[in-house]
Amino acid sequence: SGELYCSLPNPRNVHFESINMKNVLHWSAPEGTGDGVLYKVKYAVYGVGKWIRKPECRNINRTWCDLSSETSEHEEQYYASVKAFLKGACSDWMETTRFNPLTDTKIDPPMVSVSSTDRSISIVLTAPEKWKRSPEEESVSLLQVYPGIQYNVSVLNKKTKKRWFFSISNNTLVVPWLEPGTAYCVSAQIHVPTPVLDSGFSK
């Protein structure tokens, strides 16, 4: 086959974007190449001797590749790399920095369920689950991955516009002595003390 010349500009900003350990490789197209660029992806477990090609991301024209399955062992660390092709020319392999799923993922807010009596609110929080290959696969809560998880809960009195914050370690909170007939807005955030990870506040 024709000799490929690696003179094509390189893919840029090759990096992992991870939410709840759903780990997707992203990159930007090489500068000034326009349409028609195709890409190949490979990945490696840090400390293990070989690069592994990702068949589902061979000769693709999109600029992302889901490597969640290949990087699901969160006690390992990974590299991934992308190469671009266009009309017989190719780029160099462009690598990510070392990716640590445990510290480099983002965490979704917890699920908040609220019940109330006329003078109190009961709040139950549920941490999101780690990404899994299929619905049938056993669920792993991020609580198991980060044992030190804490919750920051905000309770807004819609009448007085005053907001209270609570920091709790278990996942339930009862707020007593409330004003009857008053609307309260509850929102919660996950806080992992170390490695420092904070989710956004729930809607």
């Binding site: 009195n157 007085t160 005053k162 209270w164 007593p176 002595w177 409330l178 004003e179």
Partner: peptide
């Protein structure tokens, strides 16, 4: 700083 808010003391 202590603030009273309804039946709560913050």
């Amino acid at each position: 700083r202590a603030v009273a808010d309804g039946h709560h003391l913050l």
